[in-house]
């Protein structure tokens, strides 16, 4: 794997001011449902999220990174897209692929809210034609698209974009678990470290898939996360947006 550009670390850092702290990735409703009550539950939950939403997001991020990187500086013609027979579909095409992989309206809203915030943070941080084109074409893009484009802006590869996405898919809910359950943060970090190999597998699969057409990107679903996401937006008590 290529050396990690330091700029990419900014993107993986939880302190990145991009709104992530207010999203629990379904952990809050899972806690409310007593489905996650302790460290073992959390480990299982994170494993499941990584394998589903995490993989889907990582694949979209990898595809977005590759697409953004293809925007040559000074080129006023956008790159041809995913290389599939469908030809040029642009950022809207990839955004539609994210929509098609997110059946829950609550999850689509959460993804777009985070994408919008990340786009603001990324564009304030880096200047990159792929990132600018994404912001121009899609008002509030899905989060993985912005993550991928920002990774390209930071000099990262699609595989690295996928790794950042996979890490975020687990680290976000893990941090929410510390706040919601009062778990020992050291224990929670050990769980994340134990999952690191899985994150790499997910990033490998995501990056490999992103080398092909957008149509065929992975789309593993998590029926319970969909149910919980919808239950959450109807709940009276919500500390997190999602």
């Amino acid at each position: 794997m290529a050396e990690i550009p330091a700029a990419l670390l900014l993107l993986a850092d939880a302190r990145l001011p991009a709104g992530g702290h207010a999203h629990s990735g379904g952990l809050e409703p899972a806690v409310a449902a007593h489905a996650v009550t302790d460290l073992a539950d959390l480990r299982d939950f994170l494993h499941g999220r990584l394998a589903t939403t995490g993989l889907t997001g990582a694949a979209l991020a990898a595809a977005a990174c590759a697409y953004a990187a293809a925007y040559a500086p000074d080129a006023d013609i956008p790159p041809s897209g995913d290389g599939s027979a469908g030809g040029r579909r642009g950022w809207r095409g990839l955004d539609a692929e994210a929509d098609a992989r997110t059946p829950s309206p609550a999850q689509r809203r959460a993804s777009r809210a985070q994408g919008r915030s990340l786009a603001r943070a990324a564009r304030a941080t880096w200047s990159h034609p792929g990132l600018d084109a994404l912001a121009a074409e899609v008002r509030a893009p899905h989060h993985p698209l912005v993550l991928g484009a920002a990774a390209a802006a930071a000099g990262g590869t699609p595989r690295q974009a996928a790794a950042v996405a996979a890490y975020g898919a687990a680290a976000g809910p893990a941090s929410a678990a510390v706040r919601l359950l009062g778990l020992d943060p050291l224990d929670v970090h050990r769980v994340l470290a134990d999952l690191a190999a899985r994150m790499d597998e997910v990033a490998d699969e995501a990056a490999a898939a992103a080398a092909g057409g957008w149509d065929a990107l992975p789309a593993p679903s998590a029926p319970l996360l969909d149910l919980l996401a919808e239950a959450h937006v109807r709940a009276g008590l919500r500390l997190f947006e999602s």
Binding site: R15, L16, P17, A18, G19, G20, H21, A22, H23, S24, A113, R116, S117, R120, A121, A176, R179, L180, R238, L239, F240, E241
Partner: peptide, 20 residues
Amino acid sequence: VRTGCCPHTAIRDDISANLD
């Protein structure tokens, strides 16, 4: 705006949701 248990974060360290 919901702040994910961190009201000060939402007005100081990461103002994204409020800006939105």
